[in-house]
């Protein structure tokens, strides 16, 4: 059968108005169903005719999935809240500026106006071998084209490769890991809450998924506890173009600094592994240390320990190292 990457094949579109109805539909159609949030990732798959769901479940008409509300001392953000809203909401900007910064750097204004926080977190990898529809491990085959000896893998991972060397493309993921957010997932089995860092899974666990979401699951809410509200934040996304691009490496950090000493630290990077990586070792190493260049230098070195670059992405080591250093410096450049 010939290849054509144009025009979406027919599907049935469902627009449920409640989470329960949506879950019923997903259960009814199983693997033939497709959860449609902002659609910014979905359209590519469907226009490329690689994914051909028969039932598309649009979450756009479920009011409870939208909006930002205060809860306890934190925030609850509906998964269908647009990135623009996340980036500009005053509760987010004032207390969790890290997240608004990250959301504001996603792609372009138009994409942020439509793309959702849940979608940004749950999007698939951009490995171009995989997205070309090639039968790689992630696509259910038995090969990684991107790590072949001559492969073009500049954008691929330096950590966590397990057959697959793709990276997670989400900008908001690291911010939420640094903020110790919880992801609320609904399915017909009920509701469960997953730590942000555990929401993302590596290819070792399941090579065909980026997150814990399985068929029939819906990410409904992102809960941000007050733990890190108003902390010292740093977010940076290094990309080839300043709009419509994915991070080559991005870093998000939250620090509580007292008298020049780092009391608590959380730091996560993306673009370096098939999942956003929380840097526990760095956190441990800097906690209790003075916030100075020496600490930052050491942290950068620790961050890239154990990295194994591919043919074309050795540059991600110094890049990640330098970004981690910046994230821990007092004065961001």
């Amino acid at each position: 059968m010939a290849v054509i990457r144009d025009m979406i094949p027919a599907f049935d579109l469902f627009q449920p108005t409640s989470i329960e109805d949506a879950i019923d539909l997903l259960d009814q159609y199983g693997d033939d169903s497709w959860v449609f949030a902002g659609g910014m990732d979905s359209f590519d798959w469907m226009k490329d005719r690689i994914k051909r769901p028969t039932a598309v479940v649009d979450l756009g008409n479920i009011p409870e999935l939208k909006g930002i509300t205060s809860s306890d001392d934190g925030l609850e953000i509906g998964a269908m809240t647009t990135l623009t809203e996340v980036a500009s909401n005053s509760d987010v900007t004032s207390r969790f500026g890290l997240l608004s910064q990250a959301a504001g750097l996603v792609a372009t204004p138009q994409i942020r106006n439509q793309g959702t926080l849940g979608g940004n977190l749950s999007q698939d990898t951009r490995c171009w071998y995989y997205r070309a529809g090639w039968p790689c491990y992630r696509a259910g085959g038995n090969i990684c084209y991107a790590s072949a000896p001559l492969a073009m893998n500049r954008e691929h991972c330096i950590f966590g490769a397990d057959r697959c060397v793709a990276v997670n493309p989400s900008d908001t993921a690291t911010a939420l890991i640094a903020l110790d957010a919880k992801m609320v997932v609904h399915s017909s089995k009920g509701e469960r809450e997953v730590d942000a860092e555990d929401y993302f899974i590596g290819p070792g666990i399941d090579i065909t998924r980026m997150t814990v979401l399985e068929t029939g699951d819906i990410l409904t809410t992102i809960r941000i506890p007050g733990t890190w509200a108003g902390a010292q934040f740093y977010f940076e996304k290094v990309e080839d173009r300043k709009s419509w691009d994915f991070a080559l490496v991005s870093v998000a950090s939250a620090l509580v600094v007292n008298n020049g000493r780092i009391e608590r630290a959380r730091i996560a990077v993306n673009g370096v592994a098939p999942y956003p990586m929380r840097l526990d070792a760095v956190e441990a190493a800097v906690t209790g240390k003075p916030q100075n260049e020496e600490t930052a230098e050491a942290a950068g070195d620790i961050a890239i320990r154990g990295a194994s670059p591919l043919r074309h992405n050795d540059y991600k080591l110094p890049l990640m190292k330098n970004l981690v250093r910046r994230a821990l410096r007092e004065q961001a450049p």
Binding site: L13, Q15, F36, G39, M40, F43, D58, G60, Q110, I111, N113, Q114
Partner: peptide, 10 residues
Amino acid sequence: RYSCSILTHT
């Protein structure tokens, strides 16, 4: 928004 990437029904 990008009209190429909006389902009309939405």
